[in-house]
Design a protein around this nucleic acid. Structure first.
Length: 499
RNA sequence: GUCCCCAUCGUCCAGAGGCCUAGGACGUGGCCCUUUCAAGGCCAAAACGCGGGUUCGAAUCCCGCUGGGGACGCCA
């Protein structure tokens, strides 16, 4: 089995295309087949190397590996259409010689007018066949006269073209609804339908898995396979990915590209697992499975027929799962750019990363995406007693006598205590409880406010030890300075006294 | 306009003629856990588009309608 993913490098990798790539990958990996990456860059106007590199980068980030492609090579390259122009031209010449293709001198204006007229008259909007009957003498004379004709494929008329779609079953088109497609443009570059056929045939692709938008191209391609003496591959057309309003997923729905989802802090394994669930099911009651297991279970015949709405809420849920599963060290490293873009100045060394990793569970247990980690851990690196008391709600709470007693007891206890770990923090809390007679929220909320400067945040049991571990960190760790709990408590009491 | 594809909770899936009083997940609501916010646990509400057939029996098969989507480029 040989499958392929064939993006055109005209922009970012869209999640819909990523899903097509994934399904190809699942099919190839599940069956021990090969995946080919081919760059469809025959549109020189829109294709860019930047886009190509971006697409490759996004695919690699997702972990979708390929066996042949422009970067890794392979026996049936080159893998960029722009480097295969001679092949298309030589097959076109062959079709021309066999009378299966002909030169077309129609102008764009003429073609547009014909199309419009056809729609108005209720006829299918197809090529009228004006140049079909031109003799080769006439054609060559016009070429000699300086005209640059396109080449059209002569679709045999009056017969049915049927193909068995692996996901949809038999699909039937009548040849009369297919106009003669252009295979070579006036500038001798190939048109999509032709290049695809030549490439898939020459690259020995056995299964073409692509978007549903190509379903009506399939009959044109099949007649070309036949004219060229190639055996058509099996086809499988995947339903579209839609936005919440059931229109194709686009910018106005928010993020659409893999790069954007990466930037928002989704993990590749989460995006992949989510995408696999969109149009397919790995089995009743099971959704969250490692990619290899998905590949093992994947059956192209079991892919759904109808379009699917992309649901970022569900993606977020999948991501939470993988965030919890992931190695803290990995997440710590991935989180650094997010801290930086939130204004935290850091360039952690190994110790810094180790500390960050040790604190990471505080964030990963309660956050959707990497981008939310800095906000969740802000209280670790940022403390300002004055600023805390500037918050009317905090000030209001501290107006009462009981919380003040808690805070003062806390400052006193911490003044002599060594750095807090979980147990020492608990015993300090017990001490204050005994001293003040307060418990529960009455006890812990003032502690939280004094130590974090905020009324809400992660569990103190986790946060407090992390703060005091951070306070021990040398400057060389490359993290913002962490003010320890005893300093925080003392500062808070001083600030309170000034009020 | 012509051709093609599609149709189960708001969303994603399960359902391959009787296992369906239609199952799971996300989201939503409630409850629980809890020192706060989250996270987590439990419970609940929520769907077979409509009309005809076929069959003893249809969410499942057939036809039509309606609705959605795609294609009709010298874009891919």
């Amino acid at each position: 089995m040989r499958v392929r993913f064939a993006p055109s490098p005209t922009g970012r990798l869209h999640v819909g295309n990523a899903r097509t790539a994934l399904f190809n990958w699942l099919l190839a990996r599940g069956q021990g087949g090969a995946l080919i990456l081919r760059i469809e860059d025959t549109d020189v106007e829109r294709s860019t190397r930047e886009s190509e590199e971006g697409i490759l980068r996004d695919l690699r980030w997702l972990g979708l590996t390929w066996d042949e492609g422009p970067d890794v090579g392979g026996a049936r390259g080159p893998y960029r259409q722009s480097e295969r122009l001679h092949l298309y031209q030589s097959y076109a010449a062959e079709l021309l010689a066999a009378g299966r293709a002909y030169y077309c001198f129609c102008t764009m204006t003429q073609l547009d007018a014909e199309r419009q007229a056809a729609v108005v008259e209720g006829r299918p909007a197809l090529y009228a066949g004006t140049c079909r009957r031109l003799s080769s003498e006439q054609a060559h004379a016009r070429i000699a006269g300086g005209e640059r004709p396109a080449v059209r494929f002569r679709v045999p008329d009056d017969h049915d073209i049927v193909f068995r779609d692996l996901v949809r079953g038999d699909v039937r088109f009548h040849a009369d609804v297919i106009g003669d497609p252009v295979i070579l443009r006036g500038d001798r570059t190939p048109a999509y339908n032709f290049a695809v056929v030549i490439d898939d045939a020459l690259m020995a692709v056995t299964h073409v898995v692509r978007g549903e938008d190509h379903i009506s191209n399939t009959p044109r391609q099949i007649v070309m396979y036949e004219a060229l003496g190639f055996t058509p591959p099996a086809f499988a057309h995947l339903a579209m990915v839609l936005g919440p309003d059931h229109s194709p997923l686009s910018k106005r729905h928010g993020a659409t590209s893999v790069a954007e989802f990466r930037a928002r802090g989704y993990l590749p394994e989460a995006l992949l697992n989510y995408l696999a669930l969109l149009g397919w099911s790995p089995g009743a009651d099971q959704e969250l499975l490692p990619i290899d297991e998905l590949a093992r279970r994947f059956l192209i015949e079991r892919v759904g027929h109808s379009a699917g709405v992309f649901d970022e809420e569900k993606l977020a849920w999948v991501n939470r799962h993988y965030l919890k599963m992931a190695e803290p060290a990995r997440i710590a490293e991935l989180s650094v750019p997010y801290f930086q873009s939130e204004g935290f100045e850091m360039a952690p060394d190994a110790h810094g990363l180790e500390f960050l990793a040790s604190a990471m569970v505080i964030a990963t247990s309660s956050v959707d995406r990497l981008a939310q980690i800095p906000a969740r851990l802000r209280q670790l690196f940022h403390y300002d007693a004055e600023q805390a008391l500037a918050d009317p709600r905090v000030l209001d709470e501290m107006q009462a006598e009981a919380p003040q007693r808690v805070v003062r007891a806390l400052a006193t206890a911490l003044a002599t205590a060594s750095r807090l770990d979980r147990e020492r923090f608990r015993s300090v809390a017990q001490e204050i409880k005994a001293q003040t007679g307060l418990k529960g929220k009455q006890l812990f909320h003032p502690i939280r406010v004094a130590l974090t400067g905020t009324a809400e945040g992660p569990e103190l049991d986790l946060l407090v030890p992390a703060i005091d571990r951070g306070a021990e960190l040398p400057a060389s760790a490359g993290l913002p300075r962490v003010e320890g709990c005893s300093e925080r408590a003392a500062a808070f009491v001083r600030a309170l006294g000034r009020r």
